[in-house]
Design a protein around this nucleic acid. Sequence first.
DNA 1: GCCGTTTTCGGCCCGACTGTTTTCAGTCG
Length: 574
Amino acid sequence: MNPLNKKDLIQLLEEIALYLELKGENPFRISAYRKAAQALELDERSLSEIEDFSQIKGIGKGTQELINEFIESGQSSLLSELKAEVPSGLIPLLRLPGLGGKKLARLYQELNITDQASLLKACEAGEVSSLKGFGKKTEANILQAIKESGTRPERLPIDYMLSLARKIENYLETIKEIEKFSIAGSIRRMRETIKDLDFIIATDQPESVKASLLNMEAIKQVISQGDTKVSVTLADQYDVAVDFRLVTADQFATTLHHFTGSKDHNVAMRQRAKEQGEKISEYGVADLSTGKVTTFESEADFFKHFGLNYIPPELREAKGELEAFTEEVSLVSEDQIRGDLHMHTTWSDGAHSVEEMIKFCLDKGYQYMAITDHSKFLRVANGLNEDRLRKQREEIERLRALYPDITILAGVEMDVLPNGELDFDDQFLQELDFVIGAIHSSFNQSEAEIMKRLKAAMDNPYVKMIAHPSGRLIGTREGYAVNLDELIDYAKKTHTMLELNANPKRFDLSAEWVNKAQEKGVPIAINTDAHNKKTLNYMTEGIKVARRGWLKPETVVNTWSIDELQNFFNKKEN
DNA sequence: GCCGTTTTCGGCCCGACTGTTTTCAGTCG
């Protein structure tokens, strides 16, 4: 058996919290275990490096003893006791909407419900509605929830949710009583997977906005419709819950902050408010002694009130942002971006000509760009061989004369073959301005084989960047067996840049890993990998992911001048 | 269960909505 790691311990604490919830325990005791789990997660050290767990804030004497027991014996007597008391089949039922620990405890104690099957049976027999505190409606809701459980994953990929959100935003634009609106929630923080959508709406005519919202197409079910909250389920490719919060314009900033979260960030903010004798709610900041409520023009003003610089949504995860943003924090922003180093044209599988892509990049105000079509190995994408790449280069040279305001690099996204060879030899590669190495085949190879390929690419003096290093597609494909720690170290050693692919299907490297790359001093290129005009705009999303990884402008090569970029390239070749 | 230069006991983030109720518990974000 593998030695215990921190993840095991965190999982143990979370599991204990779940069981306690089912027992209807004191909610503060439950949250104490969750806080302890979170404290461990935030601590940078590995399990063996921590000497005294009770030194960590959120972990006291009791949890420390539990941890010691777990490390020594691999077991927890508390969890064993809980498991003896509470059937484990109840745990997954906590996911059903409307069912929390207390109600489930009642179902278990009074109807002996122990899992989904027995719950279904009891609902169908009408036993649930006869229970005190339960009614016909609750029973029907549980039945429906069981039927629908498993029809969609709990969280959906951000790419899918971004496009659904855009459709909803288009509808909101048409409601004239809306003064302003914004998306909130985890999608605004750019998490990779999203559970539901939240929109904050400022209006002084909530009644009529509410009516318009309920008129929206594709509403499958109205969950709630109060004075300030409208909740619906939309029938799209998946069923998606959407919440709308209706507030006045002066409440907008605090409501937006509140529903952007994260929950942990909000808790931290509220603790800070309390320390200065105030209370934060979605409607403003109240002075505890006078009761006077202050509202804000913007989230920036709200943060300023607490002595903080504006914290971008992507960083609101209670990972030290409250401490960091008392000072000026340097983070990459879109206006610093001077170019895009990965895009395709009709020469391979793109939608536009080289010239069209140049015009689009000029429109975006870029100073440089790289044309990087696929290489010959990738036949399905009409990859280019040496001859076609030379012809494409001739065309690029012709266009350079026509568009002197932008530097156009003639490049390639070259396949790294399954056997570890590169798709072109060095003699040809040196003709190109910019070579990307990428894996598009044999994803099921072992880690050793994958790393051999990636290292072979990075060892080559002409390969300046590894594209979408993990090969994952969020929610649909795991990616190949890359050892990212090793990849980052090797990139550092070989002066190779790594990509943050800005396509929301990929976000590869992820925020977590670009952060590690930055720590190790590996430069990151944020690229759209655009195959058409629209996807050149993924830069916006890519920048947000970069900020989620706390990337500074100097880490991001697209903020460099073309000369700085060339210097870096030269360093590798010499 | 955790925490404390105001506290070793009494707090712990705050508010909306539903469904079940006759004044509110439970759930959710």
